[in-house]
Amino acid sequence: MAANVRIRRYQACYAMLLRLYPRPFRKHFAEGMAQTFHDLCREHTDAGRRLFGFALWIFCETLGGIVMENILRLNQLGKTTLRVALGALAVWMVPLVSSQFFEDWHWGVGGFARVYVLFFLTGMVMALVARRMGVWSYKAGVGLALVAGFALGWSTMVQTADSGHPERLWYLGVLAVGLIGASFARLHARGLALTLFAMAATLALIAMILPSDAPPDMARRMAIGHGVYVALFIASGLLFRHASLTESHREPNRQAPAGA
């Protein structure tokens, strides 16, 4: 009886220790590790041996594993960031070099810096989200949202730089809604669906309230452009909604899926 209480106490401490593992590792192995720890403690007490020294050894050994896994994860994240930064730099060279051949291309340092940030952020989102991709509609939703978001950000940058209308930067608010929503949703499909619908609504609202002194023909084309963006965001939101429904159907039937 006393042994059971001791084991439970050590188990609670071990469960707290396991929280220090990176989340993806914990998700896969924490349950198994806790069970294994319990089995080892049970074996040890059944053999009539003292538990303290043994538990201490396991704690130290697991702590070593925690340090190792966190270092590996940081390395991986660092490598991803470096790759995306270099990739963004390569893509960024396209407008930089192109601007040398077009006389009416006057972006300035700030414009180029913003475009680089846009490339980098798009790349990072793509790299981080790619790890979660499982359902086809989730992948399609991410692709569509990134393409639409990037096109919106890009055209806003170009138009602001060319026309000198800083109020057009309001359109970047749509992207801000997307970033905030995605971080709140923690990239879960259901939350991302709501985020994309909110982006579509924000864009429609900005298009309506932003004053436009464009001639009728230009205004009509702008309205069509806004409509296309809104449709793309809604389509992406519907894809995420489909992904969330697929995930929720799969969840109850999930039977220890093949990990590899």
Binding site: F25, H28, F29, G32, M33, T36, F37, D39, L40, W57, I58, E61, T62, L63, G64, G65, I66, M68, E69, Q255, A256, P257, A258, G259, A260
Partner: peptide
């Protein structure tokens, strides 16, 4: 220890050397 075992298994699963097969009760435990 569990740290070494599950750390190694994590990398082995990434390398597709092993995989999870099932979740069930062990009759001997």
């Amino acid at each position: 220890g569990p740290g070494t075992l599950y750390g190694s298994m994590s990398r082995m699963m990434e390398a597709t050397l092993i995989r999870e097969s099932d979740k069930r009760v062990d009759p001997e435990m």
